[in-house]
Each structure stands twice: as structure tokens, then as C-alpha cells.
Amino acid sequence: MLRVDDLHVYYGGIHALKGIHLEVNEGRIVTLIGANGAGKTTAIRAIVGLLKLNAGSIVFRGSNITDLPTHQIIRQGIAVSPEGRHVFQNLSVFENLELGAYNLRTAEFQEQLEWVFSLFPRLQERRVQVAGTLSGGEQQMLAFGRALMSRPKLVLLDEPSLGLAPLVVQEVFRAIEEVNRQGATILLIEQNAMAALTIAHYGYVLETGKVVLEGPGAKLLKDEQVRKAYLGE
């Protein structure tokens, strides 16, 4: 569904991505794990056109999206829940969700809205509240829900567990699995390698801008190198 080949990005004078490749197959949860500064977020930003590539190609559902502007990449069916959530603090929960569905028609919007509210009932309770006043966990649900509003075929989730209490992390990960069960493909960026690999079908390990290891999630979980470096054993 998504195929990234030989991606090179220079970012602020640093060779941040040194030829990474990854593939996300339809219906899967694929995770990209790695330490801080490994280039995970850079990879996401490059995929959706927020960063300029120095080399490489990105193909989504058979069409080349490498040099498209961000809004056109999004319209092909990719949604992003960015690192640090970035909900629109000055808008209400409902308005945030509306913007997530910017390119949908009204009838489709209603349908998506009901679905997102069923995943995150808390958002329904808070629909008129200004997003800036939500708790961190609620903001994460909003960022995730907002991404889902566009009826995406592929959802890129950047560090959804960052700074959240363990119970909330569980809730978010349950939602990720649920969304995946209902047909959306997920590319999950995580520092929380344990949680990510537990739910992922496939994983890539990123180190200083390179993919150093890849394999099915369960296999990576057992990998000695991974256990040492990321699971703290």
C-alpha cells in the first residue's frame, strides 16, 4: 500500500535519513521504532511532503506521491496524527474534527463523526469544549480521531503514547487495534517499543537515519538486540 525506497533527507545540515526503505501492506499495523533522534518523525514528515527529499521515492497505492504538495498527499487517503498531538487549541473539539474531514461531503462527515465518537466517547462529551482545555490524553484521542475523520486508508501515528499515563496509553493502543480491525492500515511511530511491537504485524528498527533491523513484530520482540537496546533488558 505504501512503499518508501531509498529515502534521503538532509535536515538542518544533518543527513537525517540515510536511505531508508519501508513497506506497509494493506490491513497491517506496521511500526517504526527507534531512539530519540533516530529519524522516525523525519521519516513521517518526509512521507507527507512536509520536508523536502534529497532522494528517494514514495509510492502510495500504486501512484507516485514523492513530490506532491502535502494537501494532495493527504487527499489520496493518508492521515496523520502528529507528534505532540497539535490539536487546534483555539477551536472546539467538534471544529477540530470538522477540519479533519475537510475534504469530505456532509453525509460522509456525519458517518465518520459517529464512528469516531463511538471509538472515543469522551470526545462526544467534550464536543463543544475548546481543545486547548482538554487533558493530554483527551488531546491525543482528539488528534487520533481528527486523523480518522478523513476516512483514511492509511493512518500515520507519530508517538501517540508520548507523555501519557499508562492507563491512557492502553486505551490509545486498544483504539489503534480497533481501527485496524475495521480496515484501516496503520503506520505507528513509537519510542515505546514494547507496546508498539506487541500490536504490530511488522516492525522496522531505525538507528541514526538507517533501518538496522526489520521483521514481524513478535519476532522483533524476541530479538536479543532489540531487547537490549529498546526494552531495557
Binding site: P69, I74, E98, L99
Partner: peptide, 24 residues
């Protein structure tokens, strides 16, 4: 209006506005 909401969103955060599929 939707465009107006996009305007208010853009006044806070260009990048995330673009991530909504909005032509900034």
C-alpha cells in the same frame, strides 16, 4: 464556514492545517 475554520486553524499552526488536506 469550513474555510473560516481553516483560517483560524492556520493562524495557529500552518503544518497541521496542511495535514488536514487543506490547501494552505
Amino acid at each position: 464556514t469550513k474555510a473560516g475554520k481553516a483560517m483560524r486553524a492556520a493562524s495557529r499552526d500552518f503544518e497541521t492545517t496542511r495535514l488536514m488536506g487543506i490547501n494552505l
